[in-house]
Amino acid sequence: MAGFVLRRLGGMLGTALCLTFLVFWLTNLQPNLEKLAKSQGSARMSDAEVASWLDRNGYDRPLALRYGEWLGVLPGKSGFSGVIQGDWGRSSVFHLPVGTVLARSLTATGWLMFWVLLVMVPTALALGVLAGMREGSRTDRVLSAAAITTTATPEYVSGVVLVAVFASATAGISPLLSDLGLIEGRTLLQATASTAMDEITFRNFALPVATIALYGAGYIARMTRAAMVEVMAQPYIRTARLKGVSPFRIVWRHALRNALIAPFTVILLQVPWLLNGVVIVETLFAYKGFGWTLVQAAGNNDMNLLLGCSVVAVLVVLTTQIVSDLGHVALNPRLRGA
């Protein structure tokens, strides 16, 4: 097992190196560097001025050399100082060290993901199991239709619809509730989550969480249902039934663990998806998390911040992969000690 983890960690490190080099190369393509020079210097610089600016700032040296400096394996102007040493450079948009910006935005997105997972996973698993217990039953058809609908609705649609229904002073249920005196403010929920940066409340956080959870839950529920249907048709479920085991115990003790093996991988794959998929929701609800930061970095050609974001994304993807593999082994005894 230890060997397995070590091998995976090694592979992860290699992948991270390749991917960051790819991003480094792409952001350091000549046209992008010219754009950088013009945005840092002046928009009306001549070609010669651009060249001398790039020369002055060290951008004309070989790519591999600069990548090595950025990584911290080659000495730069002030000795070894790169990603490995914890020096991720300065963000040109926020005028702060990249590490500080990333820490702030990752904390914000972390809270969002935490609440999304907390709401989405149990709901999706429960609905999937419920639907898959008896294939073709009315419960199954209703739940399946609902799951397909939420998954087929993009977040920018469901987000807007949710805002209109719950957080508009003129439409949806808020005017009604306000007239009846059931709510204090003008809207039931808040359409922006910017205050959640300081303090998370149900009012400012419910809509972004619901928008993401709706989309992901449908998908996980479909996967769980398919796994459950397959498991319920297995001979060992019939064995349990014929032993006289109660229906509840059949689902809880015999079917559930077998049915969770497939969705488990899917759930963990949702984590990196969440990290990058929050772009739309964070922008929609003005929440300054990782997605919002990524958009700012890309939009303003903030190379150090973009590279930092890609390092974080790669690490999160690879970590969830390892956790997914380990969890898979824990759930499925057939994979152990082979």
Partner: peptide
């Protein structure tokens, strides 16, 4: 009444 079926490989729960 108890019953023994024909597929011993799949008649037992693989995760118990």
């Amino acid at each position: 009444i108890a019953m023994v079926g024909q597929e011993p490989m799949s008649a037992l729960n693989p995760t118990m």
